[in-house]
């Protein structure tokens, strides 16, 4: 068999190459994590447990902390404590009324706006709803 013939014979293996590429693509799909976007409505607490201007820390479905602040008679704000820079958790510092992130020294004010440091966005807030004096939050659950 000379080289030309050999090359021609190789063409017969194209389907094999195709099958191989297909399986590779499936394998790639397999190791890519599945995602779905589900928004859940979760009960957090009764309004009585949260006096006006007070804040409470609770844990969301992923086990991450978030803060509930009662900003008015029938107004509750829910704020994530996950830093928007690279995902560390922030500390509430009473003295200067700021959230402080120990990872790269990001600072947020009490409403979650960036005051200093590298974080690109304010702290994430969750949509809240009060129904019969019960506080609910809408929480995005991305795990598959």
């Amino acid at each position: 068999m000379d080289r030309r013939d050999a090359l021609k014979n190789m063409l017969a293996f194209i389907p094999l190459g195709g099958a191989f590429a297909g399986i590779t693509a499936m394998g790639f799909r397999f190791i890519t994590p599945k995602k779905r976007d589900v928004t859940r409505r979760i009960f957090t607490m009764h309004l009585d447990e949260l006096p006006i201007n007070a804040s409470r820390q609770i844990t969301d479905l992923r086990g991450k902390d978030l803060v509930l602040v009662r900003t008015g008679e029938r107004e509750v704000k829910a704020m994530s404590t996950v830093c928007t820079h690279l995902g560390c958790t922030v500390y509430w510092q009473k003295d200067n009324q700021e959230f402080y992130c120990p990872c790269h020294a990001g600072r947020f004010d009490k409403d979650g706006n960036v005051v200093a440091g590298p974080p690109p966005r304010p702290l994430e807030t969750y949509h809240t709803e009060i129904e019969d004096d019960n506080v609910f939050i809408y929480f995005k659950d991305a795990e598959g």
Partner: peptide, 27 residues
Amino acid sequence: PNVTPLHIKPEWYFFAVFRWLKITNLL
């Protein structure tokens, strides 16, 4: 997963990157 330690440092070979992250914006 809920509490980042107040004093956090990576291994020494990441120190330069770590400092760089503190003084620049995210991108």
